[in-house]
């Protein structure tokens, strides 16, 4: 049971991207795809409209929280992009955020560890959880969505057990470096946003310009063909889930830093869906084999712009979900149209 059998891609070829060995540089697509250009235009238009509608929008007091709030979703989205490129999916990241956040929060309250130790702990816990997913998916040869539904329940159980039926109170401000406040900014730019950009740039380079990155696309295009071409499919797939676990651990630190000194057991709820939404709006194909990190970052920015914008316009905050749903449909529709045009051309 290979991962590509979830959806027979009705004759869509995996694209020429999978073969980079012969003519380097020539076969790589243009660094920025149509979807990303459209996203940039849409975000620019939204920002312009919001700036006209509410003068307070284009001020530091409004943009900084927006960038801080999008950072954890984008960070998880980067990992999710890599997983989805290999043809998998991970719906357990919300549970992972919960476990990492509660472990770190309890440790900080209990023994007052320093910032690097807290981050390292969170990333390690995330990595271990990702390893569990990766081992089950790569070596159990079961479709990712089923395994991660299962581990989502297990992680939630683990997190709730550690919470022990109450909230974690009195979290010290150790993680303020990632937060919204003054400690979380350098020259007005939030650190969490900068770190997310650095990770995104590294992932972008890895996916585009290294053999390992191209292998991930090859696996998503056709796992059997990739294996026959000498790609170590299982090891690569495993590494994608571990990486997502590590990034989710870091994102959990951001989440703690953004919250108050109290951590409630509903931390992380719904993050799997927002991360997948960001990935999909960014133009990554859910069938695997196609996608980019840049698109995901833009997708996360769009989602957060809509969420903040709806609140700032004084509308009911839940209306944001409606717009996000519509944006997902438009983004995927545009991608389908372009694919169709490419096929008939």
């Amino acid at each position: 049971m290979s991962s590509s059998t979830l959806a027979p891609t009705d004759g869509t070829p995996p694209g020429p991207r999978a073969h980079t060995a012969t003519a380097r540089g020539r076969v790589l697509p243009f660094p920025i795809t149509g979807q990303e250009i459209v996203l940039i235009v849409v975000i620019a238009v939204l920002w312009a409209v919001l700036a006209v509608a509410t003068p307070a929008f284009l001020t530091g007091g409004s943009i900084v929280p927006l960038l801080v709030a999008m950072a954890p979703v984008a960070l998880i989205g980067i990992g999710m992009t890599i997983i989805i490129i290999t043809g998998g999916i991970d719906v357990s990241v919300a549970g992972m955020v919960m476990v990492c956040a509660v472990v770190v929060a309890k440790t900080m309250v209990g023994s007052g560890v320093s910032l690097p130790v807290a981050v390292l702990l969170s990333v390690l816990v995330g990595g271990v959880l990702g390893l569990v997913n990766g081992l089950l998916i790569a070596y159990g040869r079961v479709h990712a969505i089923i395994i991660t539904f299962g581990t989502a329940n297990l992680f939630e159980f683990l997190g709730l057990r550690i919470f022990g039926g109450s909230t974690v109170n009195g979290i010290p401000g150790t993680l303020g470096f990632f937060g919204r406040g003054d400690a979380g900014r350098t020259l007005g730019v939030p650190h969490s946003f900068l770190i997310m950009l650095l990770v995104a740039a590294a992932a972008w380079y890895y996916l585009r310009h290294t053999a390992g990155g191209r292998h991930l696309y090859a696996i998503g295009g056709d796992a059997d063909a990739a294996r026959l071409a000498g790609v170590k499919v299982q090891r690569r797939v495993l590494s994608a889930y571990v990486l997502t676990g590590l990034l989710t651990g870091l994102a959990a630190c951001f989440v703690i830093a953004q919250g108050t000194s109290t951590l409630a057991p509903n931390v992380g709820t719904g993050m799997e869906l927002s991360a997948i939404a960001a990935v999909v709006i960014g133009g990554t194909s859910i069938m695997g084999g196609r996608g980019s990190v840049l698109g995901t970052v833009l997708g996360a920015l769009l989602v957060q712009t809509v969420t903040s914008g709806v609140t700032q316009l004084g509308w009911r905050s839940q209306l944001a979900s409606l717009f996000i749903g519509i944006f997902i449909l438009i983004a995927v529709g545009a991608d389908l149209l372009r694919q169709r045009a490419r096929r008939t051309a």
Binding site: A7, I89, L273, I276, A277, V280, I286, M287, Q318, L319, A320, S321, L322, I324, G325, I326, I328, L329, V332, G333, L336
Partner: peptide, 16 residues
């Protein structure tokens, strides 16, 4: 449309 994405989008829309 792929089912996973479509129903994710309508999940957002209907619940909103």
């Amino acid at each position: 449309y792929p089912a996973l994405i479509t129903t994710l989008a309508t999940y957002y829309a209907f619940s909103s």
